[in-house]
Nucleic acid binder design. Structure first.
Lengths: 201, 201
DNA sequence: TAATTGTAAGTAACTTATTACATACAAACG
DNA sequence: CGTTTGTATGTAATAAGTTACTTACAATTA
């Protein structure tokens, strides 16, 4: 759908980010070329460089978009919950839903994760996971403070497993499962995870 | 170290596989070129094609190598354990150790996982995970049969979380943690996982 | 008018794979 | 035993295609 009239750099940047994520849903993000993005947008390849100085800059913008939107979703889910334990559940399910809506997100993150060195993109992905784990750890501590979960719980391990459970679901879904199934599987895994916390529902 | 005397195709194939995995430990496997492999081996780039018909064939050989060696390790760990529950623990720790010894393995798997379509390499990676999950599910059923774990356990979810816990550990370790730390973290996560199973140690 | 957004064409670097040719090696033979 | 001879393994060069990015120029818009 070539929305061909000229557009501002701001709106084109948003369009490039969205197109990158849309393409990443079905293909290896590392193999997405500037030509692919331009073709999907209905412009020529060179046009992209009017709005981003390099492909690296595009990837950084995508990472920052993910950080902002994912953290917002998680924050909303947590704040809407009546207590810390239900906040954890809500964050888990909100994350899964976010990924189901935008399958390109985990694929992009995994692709950047593979990159060596300390590029800004990688640092951004790193920050996303750190903030995420920090938020989970805080919720766990809150739940512990009001005895919703075991008092002898290792919160560091629990936060790691929280993230790991989701990452594992995504990986196993990427490998041939029916994408819609992830929601059902997520509930099963979440229930099991809460048992490990010693949660009293 | 150019081990330059002529070698048989068999030994060169093994060398190519090992070199690929060694390079994948530190770089994005998708970005490893035939020139990189050849340079690391001390031969010219064209020489590789005396032993493999294409780069795809190299990747397939690597995947098959991983399948054989990983499954062997897991099988040994499980059989050496006195009961099904300790078999699960042993498989978990054996997998973590395998990955710590060969960091290129998970990186290679994740890279292939991102590839679309149904290439033989992808099918092989798919088979590895299916077999792995199947083995875990069997061990869980065995443990349930002798009441080492909760009888109302959802074994499908438990097998998924078992794999996910490891995959999560790997991902979080790839993101900047100290590699040696993974063993310690693994034990914490494993203990929490076993609590979720309702295990009685 | 002047800046912005677009196009079309081009470039330099890189990648896989092939080709023509050289050399080591083992078996066969006189 | 020494020579020949066929094959497996290596090299150097290069073909053919792809990629990110640039440049010269045109058109839109403020």
């Amino acid at each position: 759908m070539p929305s061909n009239p000229r557009q501002s750099t701001g709106s084109r940047q948003a369009e490039i980010i969205a197109t990158m994520l849309a393409l990443a849903a079905a293909r290896n993000p590392a193999d997405i070329t500037t030509t692919d993005i331009a073709k999907a947008m209905g412009v020529t390849q060179g046009a992209l460089f009017r709005h981003f100085s390099s492909k690296e800059a595009i990837r950084l913008a995508v990472a920052e978009w993910i950080e902002a939107h994912l953290m917002a979703r998680l924050g909303e889910a947590r704040q809407a919950a009546p207590d810390a334990l239900q906040g954890l559940e809500a964050m888990f399910l909100a994350h899964v839903q976010f990924i189901r809506e935008l399958p390109g997100v985990p694929r992009f993150v995994f692709a950047e994760l593979q990159q060596p060195g300390d590029s800004p993109v990688r640092q951004c992905v790193q920050k996303i996971m750190q903030r995420h784990r920090q938020t989970v750890a805080e919720a766990l501590e809150s739940a512990k403070a009001v005895q919703l979960i075991r008092l002898d719980l290792d919160c560091h391990a629990a936060a790691a497993l929280f993230l790991g459970a989701i990452q594992g679901l995504v990986i196993q879904t990427m490998l041939g499962e029916v994408p819609a199934e992830i929601d059902e599987r997520a509930r099963g895994v979440l229930r099991l995870y809460l048992c490990g916390l010693g949660a009293r529902p």
